[in-house]
Design a protein around this nucleic acid. Sequence first.
DNA 1: TATCACTATTTTGTACACAATTTGAAAAGT
DNA 2: ACTTTTCAAATTGTGTACAAAATAGTGATA
Lengths: 221, 221
Amino acid sequence: MLKVAKDEKTEQKRSTAQRIEHSLMEEIAVGELFPGQRLDEVGLAERFGASRTPVREALSRLTAQGVLVAGEKRGVFVAKYTREELSQIFEAMHEIESACARIAATRLNLLTRSEIETAQTACVLAAEGGDRTAYLRANEGFHMAIYKATGNPYMAEIALEFRRRTGPFRAKKFATKEDLIASAQNHQELIDDIFSEDSATASKSMRDHMTVSFIQALKAN
Amino acid sequence: MLKVAKDEKTEQKRSTAQRIEHSLMEEIAVGELFPGQRLDEVGLAERFGASRTPVREALSRLTAQGVLVAGEKRGVFVAKYTREELSQIFEAMHEIESACARIAATRLNLLTRSEIETAQTACVLAAEGGDRTAYLRANEGFHMAIYKATGNPYMAEIALEFRRRTGPFRAKKFATKEDLIASAQNHQELIDDIFSEDSATASKSMRDHMTVSFIQALKAN
DNA sequence: TATCACTATTTTGTACACAATTTGAAAAGT
DNA sequence: ACTTTTCAAATTGTGTACAAAATAGTGATA
């Protein structure tokens, strides 16, 4: 198979339902679908050129993941959180991220160190270039490299789930090039502490990083 | 509405799909459906007197929650974990439970203290009666009372999700009445430490409780 | 006997249609 | 003018049918 075919497979995944699910997830993460927006089954069916059945399956799964919520009225909506709820979500994410850093610090190896550094390089490049979208992606990659370094796919899974749920809200805080550069510098300190292989230091450093990040995000929402 | 009607509503919830979802979740938690077992869409449809449509929705949601997994062959299966995977899941659960205990210790109030004590009373009663099923339920209630005491529904949500995923595996370790009583006594120590309102003590106590619990569970699986 | 190919059967994915709720609005009555 | 009731339209939930895909089984050939 050629590269193109592989890319197509990555895009199409398997079924129509999965294609719709991933498309919606992407649109929510990027912010094309804004929080609170209602998702109409028939409308989506027309948009994707499918029937309601696969659309329903996609919506159902996204709801189970917490990316969408069933409103008290009819319809499902892109999850929208009050500042209070956002604060609670960030508190939970805070705990999980720092647990990841703590575990990762005890399990580092050459491969995972290298992957974290590579991801950080991408962050720095995107920040210096002032490319906001690229930085958002690189930032995800950086945190995912840390998740992977835990060697625990289940920790990684929940960390990633929170990251998805909060994506639209965290993205807001990156307005200027200076924001990007400041974030990338924060990463560097975090890396140093994780690479010290002292779990307490790593955990505390991640706590600080996330605290800063969340306070900025709360201000922007 | 009469009490009976309310119970019926609790049982039926809302839609056929949700009824099936909860029934399956229950059966998995109790162990009627054992890990690795294949779930057949048409078979379930007949069993629940419904068509494949709501069955598919239920299976889809349970898969998104990690209770079921899509096998490499056809069909969905009750999640089955190797001892290695189980160990990783327990590690993650370990982190989350102790984070819950830490947060709960800082946010206790009269209501949540009372709810934790009530849940513990139910545990002790079930343990002394040697009623394994009742103890399993009471134990869930006890941990859920702690989750609730965090005041953070999102922490509670992920903790509960792990609890569901590991239900069948943790249940195995409760074989004799002595197992139940020992577990209930462990609870009491944990309560004392959480009620001390010192977050570090509470967290450490939960870590110890879960460590013991998981080691026993790993032995039994 | 083993391997390959082809067919048949099971199973999954999607479309469509219908039934059951719910919401919103209009109309009627106080 | 405000409440209540009724009705219509939109929307969701479920059943059924059909198409596509995959697995298992059977047979043929080397």
